[in-house]
Design a binder for these strands. Structure first.
Lengths: 220, 220
DNA sequence: CGTATATTTGAACAGAATCAAACAGGGTGG
DNA sequence: CCACCCTGTTTGATTCTGTTCAAATATACG
């Protein structure tokens, strides 16, 4: 029906949770490596695994029949991917760069959660964190202007980077589809932020935050 | 700091889970009644309870400082409310009409989930159902036109009603804030749907679906 | 260096928002 | 029972933000 995760990942170094420190899920999963643009899961496929992202960045995308694309989220190291789905994946998950993940069988996870309170709590916590992020994002998409939306994602990325020099792991098109804008509008907002001396593009996929306060204010 | 649920609910018939059939949560909660426009939870308050909605309709809303309002969801009988939050409620929850709910202390729920696999699974299932709904809604808000969004919510309501004659439990403003539109645009879309003979307004809060297929097509 | 791809910029357009006014509906009190 | 008012809804005219279509420019990669 569809290839196993290991096959699809073209995996090179599968091993049983080796090298994971302090992750209660480590014992139940297999560590896999995905390369840039690999698909971890495909929209409409049955849900088989939940992934703990160990390193790299993953986007979840939904492609409609008419070609309209919506990115649900960008996931970073530590995130749990695949919680949001029922029997079928609503969104695909794709590696933005080389990623390593811990793949845990859903059935295993459920069984374990039923037996072990810590696992149950971990899932609950991860799920409600994800729900909160989605609520926040819904407000952004629904009620914020283009400049505010772009500022918000840049502020988020800057926060993760922890320094002024921030590199953008995703394309403009990804940003556009995440923010429900067009690529042209995103580009214009970048230019505008640069003209206002809020940021400075130091490369296509790299920027410097010149005025963090202004960025934060716009993002709020 | 803030009033207890029972106080705020101005509750008249609290009882320990009486009258609930087949709800595994029944044993752990208290049944409460809220009146139209009562607040079940207030934005920014600490999360204390999770609510199982037994009857009525509840909206969750986030009000920004600048007055922009986003409705996160409308909840109907059977829904679990308050899953999405961490320590603090991001959204308020308000009764659209008289509602009865089962309030379960969050701490109780967590403890119970850690002990009882069925409860853990129930929470997991409810959470992922909610995540899926939000993803769907995000696509609507982000990538659909005004007419499609309005058609979508009307199709949803019609589906719940299970018949042509559907009454709308929420105001136009609520619909607008749910769909991230203005009240004027919502009103215009209603008129347009009526002009196209897809629906017919039989009252301000009541409509008849004349062409279910067309409505479905628009909503898709 | 040249080619394919990604990004930026420009001009015209469209859809929804805003501002403003008219129009119900639903209660209330006379 | 009717006139009135308050609120919620509809409609109209205009504006504005973001989209679309098109072209130019930059970047990465062979």
């Amino acid at each position: 029906m569809h290839l196993s995760v290991v096959d699809r990942a073209n995996n090179v170094g599968a091993s049983h949770g080796a090298g994971l420190t302090n992750d209660p899920l480590a014992a139940f999963g297999v560590q896999l490596v995905f390369r840039r643009n690999d698909e971890l899961v495909r929209q409409e496929d049955p849900t088989e695994f939940v992934y703990r992202l160990l390193s790299g960045v993953v986007r979840t995308t939904r492609l409609a029949d008419d070609g309209r694309r919506q990115i649900g989220a960008f996931h970073y190291a530590g995130d749990l991917i695949g919680l949001e789905d029922g029997d079928i994946h609503l969104f695909s998950a794709e590696a933005l760069c080389d990623c390593s993940v811990l793949a845990v069988r859903r059935t295993t996870l459920e069984a374990e959660a039923a037996r072990n309170g810590d696992i149950a709590r971990l899932l609950w916590t991860a799920g409600s964190k994800r729900l909160r992020e989605m609520q926040q994002h819904m407000v952004h998409i629904g009620r914020k202007s283009a400049i505010e939306r772009v500022a918000a994602i840049l502020a988020d990325l800057a926060g993760r980077a922890g320094r002024d020099e921030v590199d953008l792991p995703m394309s403009r098109q990804d940003i556009a589809d995440y923010l429900s804008l067009t690529i042209e509008t995103v580009s214009r907002m970048f230019s505008q932020l640069q003209a206002r001396n809020v940021i400075s593009l130091t490369g296509l996929r790299c920027m410097r935050v010149c005025n963090p306060a202004a960025l934060q204010r716009l993002a709020a």
